[in-house]
């Protein structure tokens, strides 16, 4: 197959260059994918301006869990109390801390609300840290790859996810737009490359994550749905670099395919990939 050469000047709009190339090669049967993934503006704004999302409502449940776990409330609540009083080692009992004549304290049974209750900011910080940890640990739990006969590979939930749960990272190589364009041109020549360029904006800076390389990570295999996505993309700063994470938009049942909106609405892409419309 004859390839377009590089002497075509790069226009600022990537898609147009591609389109030109497509016309030149005339390869309409199996076009090198001219669609791209874009973080939709609405998502983007939500992401940048609004408060960090909440995985679960800040739980006043702690009291229930504390009930079965006295040890936690002990360490939490007994600040300032003398710990040196006859420490009893009772093999069967959980209560091994200070007791005078075996007398237990009420705070071992009931959590002190003030220390258990967290301010909104600490709750959010903790959620943020938990997310960062999951991204660093490359968490991909509860997901499996399945081959769909009409659309190729896709990712299916192997457990239930709750709305707001972290599902998977869209992992790849982070780059700026200039490099992304160069790469995209390069990929355009290879019809098997597919499109894994995810353009997004974080704090006003345009980035792209290139996941073209087969890495074994699952984020790049998640399919598109415009009408019925169950994931949303969020940007997350980890070690001062933006990362893309896919978060459950609704509760996801075990066995459901996970989908998100690629965000590409351009006519160009739609023409070649009519499935983008759905």
């Amino acid at each position: 197959m004859v390839r377009a050469t590089h002497n075509v000047p790069t226009t600022p709009l990537q898609i147009q260059t591609r389109r030109q190339k497509l016309l030149m090669t005339g390869g309409t049967n199996s076009p090198p994918t001219p669609h791209r993934i874009e973080l939709r503006h609405d998502n983007n704004e939500e992401n940048n301006c609004k408060k960090p999302f909440i995985c679960q409502p800040p739980a006043p449940k702690s009291r229930k869990t504390l009930f079965n776990n006295h040890a936690v409330s002990n360490s939490d609540n007994q600040n300032g109390e003398v710990k040196s009083l006859s420490v009893k080692e009772s093999s069967k009992n959980n209560f091994t801390n200070n007791k005078v004549n075996g007398q237990q304290k009420l705070t071992e049974f009931f959590p002190v609300r003030r220390s258990v209750r967290k301010t909104k900011t600490t709750v959010l910080e903790e959620q943020q840290l938990a997310l960062e940890k999951m991204v660093r640990d490359k968490t991909e739990d509860g997901l499996e790859v399945r081959l769909f006969k009409d659309k190729g590979r896709g990712v299916v939930a192997a457990k239930d996810f709750c709305r707001g749960d972290f599902v998977v990272e869209y992992s790849g190589i982070l780059m700026d737009t200039t490099e992304a364009r160069q790469r995209e041109e390069m990929y355009a020549q290879n019809e098997n490359a597919g499109c894994y360029m995810y353009y997004f904006k974080h704090n006003g800076v345009q980035y792209c994550i290139d996941a073209t390389q087969e890495t074994g990570r699952l984020g790049r295999l998640v399919n598109h749905s415009r009408t019925n996505p169950n994931l949303v993309t969020k940007t997350l700063m980890v070690d001062k670099k933006p990362r893309l994470i896919l978060i459950a938009k609704d509760d996801i049942k075990n066995g459901e395919e996970v989908l998100y909106d690629y965000g590409d609405r351009s006519k160009e892409s739609l023409q070649h990939h009519p499935w983008l419309a759905y």
């Binding site: 009893k88 080692e89 009772s90 093999s91 069967k92 009992n93 209560f95 007791k99 004549n101 075996g102 007398q103 237990q104 304290k105 009420l106 071992e108 049974f109 009931f110």
Partner: peptide, 12 residues
Amino acid sequence: YYLAPKIEEDEN
């Protein structure tokens, strides 16, 4: 009134 129980001395 709520009262925390005592652990019996001779339990173990």
